[in-house]
């Protein structure tokens, strides 16, 4: 088949809502868009361990510590699922990590905010994982097979993340006045950055149309953001906490909650590297990578030694 015929076959596959698999022909733009998106998604999971990891040694109980460890471990796992999906498109994991460390591939801006109190861990579970789930559920039907399958595994695991955050937030809210105030303060700081996780508004999102045409994106940024707001308002009422937006109110005509204006200047600033923790996040990531170098080298040396000795491993029966 020549390229024109391959393009026709690809277009027909997308039009019929079929899944593209790694060995299929695909347009270069489709491949590049997916590498950028999946790598950014993987990097977000890996960098996303830092704000919560900050509290592992200081969790208020053994129960909460075990839960937090398990959650952060899951986020590492999500990163690995996603790197492996991106690798099917022809970019090596080493290259993706190098691009992250060089600031040439991004991660979600949400992880550039600090976690000064224990309630931030609860707020992240409820709001940040909640927003991530809203974004990710439609991606389980994305046109690229390996990405869609990774998202199915991830979404199953995210449910625990969101529930532990909600449970913890509820416990704080129903606790002492100080604990309640701490829970409210965390919501005040995380609400607006969580809304920014859905990306720029639809009229300022130049790549969305192409991603939608390719079946990568199923709903627009504003549609997903609205869905998230509608889910959170009643949940906040159950929590006894106030979402920090005086314009938030039910619009019976639209059948949705109206919400206030998002500060997109702040979003752009964080994207540019000027958020509260951008430098710290990348510096910590680079440090972790170089601190782990001796482990990778030792494992490779051991493997080479075993191979030289002709050692074999038992095979499947």
């Amino acid at each position: 088949m020549d390229t024109d015929q391959q393009q026709v076959a690809f277009d027909a596959l997308i039009a019929s809502d079929g899944r593209v698999e790694p060995r299929d022909w695909m347009p270069e733009g489709y491949r590049k868009t997916l590498i950028r998106q999946i790598a950014q998604h993987a990097h977000s999971e890996i960098i996303g361990m830092q704000p919560e990891g900050n509290w592992i040694t200081r969790a208020p109980s053994l129960r909460r510590k075990a839960i937090l460890l398990a959650k952060v471990q899951d986020e590492a796992g999500h990163g690995l699922y996603l790197y492996s999906a991106a690798e099917t498109l022809g970019m090596s994991r080493e290259e993706m990590l190098d691009l992250l460390h060089a600031g040439r591939q991004r991660y979600s801006s949400i992880f550039n905010y600090p976690t000064p109190t224990w309630a931030d861990v609860a707020a992240i579970g409820w709001l940040v994982d909640g927003a991530a789930i809203t974004n990710q559920v439609p991606l389980t039907r994305c046109s690229y097979g390996p990405y869609a399958r990774a998202m199915i595994r991830i979404c199953k695991e995210e449910s625990f993340h969101q529930r532990q955050g909600f449970e913890s937030q509820l416990q704080l809210s129903n606790g002492t006045p100080e604990q309640h105030a701490m829970a409210q303060d965390a919501i005040d700081r995380w609400w607006w950055p969580s809304l920014m996780m859905f990306g720029p508004p639809d009229d300022d999102s130049p790549n969305s149309a192409q991603s939608t045409a390719w079946g990568i994106k199923r709903f627009s940024n504003d549609e997903l953001r609205q869905r998230f707001v509608d889910i959170c308002v009643p949940q906040a009422q159950t929590l006894g906490l106030t979402l920090p937006d005086p314009d938030l109110c039910w619009n019976a005509e639209r059948g949705h909650y109206d919400y206030g204006v998002i500060d997109w200047t702040e979003f752009q600033q964080v994207l540019k590297g000027n958020g509260p923790c951008n430098r710290q996040r990348i510096a910590t990531r680079r440090q972790a990578h170089s601190d782990g170098a001796w482990v990778r080298e030792a494992a490779a040396a051991y493997a080479a030694k075993k191979q030289a000795a002709g050692a074999t491993v038992p095979v499947a029966a």
Partner: peptide
């Protein structure tokens, strides 16, 4: 021995949706 890795480990009040 890690039941807390499962969503059912957590108590959520009745009637809360999308959790």
């Amino acid at each position: 021995d890690k039941p807390y890795r499962h969503p059912t480990f957590y108590t959520i009040p009745d009637g809360v949706e999308h959790l």
